[in-house]
């Protein structure tokens, strides 16, 4: 039997543990909830040779396998929020998949500067710069100008285990 290895932490716990009155701003329930998940992409070859991909639980994964990291957001509050930015540092053991959306906003310097990958560069040891590649990506992010109450969505990025 394989063990199911997706571990879910209730990160809202940090906020709930705070004494309410003293930290009114932080203690107020967040209007937005984020829920992360991860799926493995398995290629299934049919008897006639055609290949289809399927998202499965990442029970058995090895270097080279493809993962889809997803974050669901839902706005449970009553007022629109603005400047909604979801930032996702890439785990060190994965690289951004080569077929990631070219329009995805990424960082190759630990989240200091951002842009589409094609616009970014990485310094070489000799001081010159080279174009950044998917392997260089340290963070991805999504920026939405505003979210209306009740709105929800799903943000994903594909990654390959190094």
């Amino acid at each position: 039997m394989t063990t199911f290895k997706t571990i879910t932490f209730a990160l809202a716990a940090a906020a709930m543990a705070l004494p309410g009155a003293a930290f009114a701003t932080q203690a107020a329930a967040s209007a937005i909830a984020l829920t992360g998940d991860v799926k493995a992409v398995k290629v299934i070859t049919a008897a006639d040779g055609t290949e289809t991909t399927e998202l499965v639980e990442p029970n058995t994964i090895i270097p080279g396998d493809r993962l889809i990291f997803g974050t669901d957001y839902v706005h449970g509050g009553s007022e629109a929020v603005s400047n909604f930015t979801v930032t996702n540092p890439l785990p060190g053991a994965v690289r951004l998949a080569p077929d990631a959306d070219p329009a995805l906003e990424v960082s190759v310097d630990g989240g200091k500067t951002w842009g589409v990958l094609a616009a970014l560069t990485v310094p070489n040891s000799d001081g010159a710069v080279r174009p950044a590649t998917h392997t260089d990506v340290t963070h991805v992010r999504w920026v939405l100008a505003s979210i209306a109450p009740g709105a929800k969505g799903r943000l994903t990025y594909p990654a390959i285990i190094r």
């Binding site: 990160l11 701003t25 107020a28 209007a31 937005i32 984020l34 992360g36 991860v38 993962l67 990291f69 974050t71 957001y73 509050g77 007022e79 929020v81 603005s82 400047n83 909604f84 930015t85 979801v86 930032t87 996702n88 540092p89 890439l90 785990p91 053991a93 994965v94 979210i147 943000l155 285990i161």
Partner: peptide, 13 residues
């Protein structure tokens, strides 16, 4: 491999 997303936003307050 641990993945966490962080959201920042302005709710008026």
């Amino acid at each position: 491999i641990e993945n966490t997303a962080v959201a920042s936003y302005d709710d008026g307050a």
